[in-house]
Design a protein around this nucleic acid. Structure first.
Length: 427
RNA sequence: GGAGAGGUGGCCGAGUGGUUGAAGGCAGCCGCCUGCUAAGCGGUUGUAGGGGUCAUACCCUACCCAGGGUUCGAAUCCCUGCCUCUCCGCCA
């Protein structure tokens, strides 16, 4: 959520931001109109309240002294009656203003490259050598099925399309990756491990920006119940909302959290995309990194968070590149985003495995997460950041494809050997 | 699921219709005093919105879980919701 004052006083800047994102700046017209009405009415209402309060106080004083106050009572009643409809209109305008405000995306940071779509994203750096094969590399789903460690067919029977059963060494590899990532981030990168609810309420989803605009991407427990629980599409939601409506102490910042959770996405509108394999599932595992930072160094925090996610790929020996998303491709809530893309030999393509973003105060304003500066009056909104560290299923898929052998076996990367108690997977 | 109790400032806690943003205490901050520590004395300390100012000062409005209602006036009365605690039941 943007500061309404920026929209009011710096309209040009917001219009510019919307254009860069490829959005229609016309969405501002309505909110500016509502906002003007709201402010005009607010002044009237406050004036009326002031009058009423002062008369009421006089009444109190007179009554205490045993004097007659009937003439004032009459006057007060008149004012009070006149206020009713104004107060009601004001309430409605406040609700409407917020509804509109919640639909306006974040302003991209100056360093976010301008562009229309993913073709305008900029490669920032890459790491590792793309492996060469002296045989035709197989898809990860073929490798997994041949090894008997991934079972898409039976998952379809018990759940449907876009689900998988990890079997035997597959299940263990998934678990090994989760443990490896959590151990790395808690042990070496300074994150605190969190295990949050994976069902959340609407306020939490609104706080991080999934609602109200992206309802169709979410799974709900009870479609008919407006108050029903929603399944998280990412641990970003429950973990960022840990501090909702809190005022943090400056000395406690930055806060680093990491959490493993399953994630649930409807993938509405992606029919036909990645229909096979682990890339796009309705349920998948992810280890998430979340930071609460002070505004003045949130961009340094974004760099280090991205580096923390990259470290997972480096240790596993998976070739990847880092891409700065352009203004047309960054998410609704983000000001700047780096995607980490890992190499998939069978597709001969880099595919997204992590997305690391600085949301600045956009989520903090929605979720009301502030901090108090030492020795200063008032409060400031924190900056929130998060990134996948990493998407576990995609990491497993990348391992299968990059470390496959001609005989169909797969070499287990060294850091996972202790977790797997094995050096390779074969039939 | 059944029965009961309760939600007040950073914390504890008073307040049952009228200058109460809220007694008192603790903690914090500033100053005084005291040969260390401790104690003592005085002062001060919430958040948000609007107005105002170069910026302060200052003025107004709102906020005692949330949302409604009664009333000239609500922390205080009424209704609804949420949450917490205790007991019983059930349960991984």
């Amino acid at each position: 959520m943007l500061d309404i004052r920026i929209i009011r006083e710096n309209t040009d800047k917001v219009v510019d931001a919307l254009k860069k994102r490829g959005e229609d700046p016309g969405i501002l017209d309505k909110i500016l109109e509502i906002e003007k009405e709201r402010r005009d009415l607010l002044r009237i209402v406050e004036e009326q309240r002031q009058q009423r309060n002062s008369i009421s106080q006089q009444i109190g004083r007179l009554k205490k002294e045993g004097n007659d106050a009937s003439h004032l009572l009459e006057e007060a009643k008149k004012i009070s009656d006149a206020m009713v409809s104004n107060e009601e209109s004001l309430r409605e305008l406040e609700i409407k203003a917020r509804q509109e405000l919640l639909l306006i995306p974040n302003i991209p940071h100056d360093t976010t490259p301008a562009g229309r779509d993913e073709n305008d994203n900029i490669e920032v750096r890459h790491w590792g050598d793309v492996p060469g094969f002296d045989f035709e590399p197989k898809n990860h789903w073929d490798i997994g099925e041949d090894l008997g460690i991934l079972d898409f067919e039976r998952a379809g029977k018990i759940a449907g399309a876009r689900f998988v059963i990890y079997n035997g060494a597959g299940a263990r590899l998934e678990r090994a990756l989760i443990n490896f990532m959590l151990d790395l981030h808690t042990g070496e990168h300074g994150y605190r491990e969190i295990m949050p609810p994976v069902l959340v309420n609407r306020e939490a989803m609104t706080g991080t920006g999934q609602l109200p605009k992206f309802e169709e991407d979410l799974f709900k427990l009870d479609e008919s119940d407006a108050k029903g629980y929603l399944l998280i599409p990412t641990a970003e939601v429950p973990v960022t909302n840990i501090h909702r409506e809190e005022i943090l102490a400056e000395k406690d910042l930055p806060i680093y959290y990491t959490a493993y959770t399953p994630c649930f996405r409807r993938e509405a509108g992606s029919y036909g995309k990645d229909t096979r394999g682990l890339i796009r599932q309705h349920q998948f595992n992810k280890v998430e990194l979340v930071k609460f930072a002070k505004p003045e160094n949130s961009y340094d925090e974004l760099e280090s968070l991205t580096a923390n996610a990259e470290e997972v790929l480096k240790r596993l020996g998976l070739p990847y590149r880092v891409v700065a998303l352009c203004t047309g491709d960054i998410g609704f809530s983000a000001a700047k985003t780096y995607d980490l893309e890992v190499w998939f030999p069978a597709q001969a393509k880099y595919r997204e495995i992590s997305s690391c973003s600085n949301f600045e105060d956009f989520q903090a304003r929605r979720a009301d997460i502030r901090f108090k500066k030492e020795g200063k009056k008032g409060t400031e909104f924190v900056h929130t950041l998060n990134g996948s560290g990493l998407a576990v299923g995609r990491t497993l898929a990348a391992i299968l494809e990059n470390f496959q052998e001609k005989d169909g076996s797969v070499i287990i990367p060294a850091p996972l050997v202790p977790y797997m108690d094995a050096e390779k997977m074969s039939n």
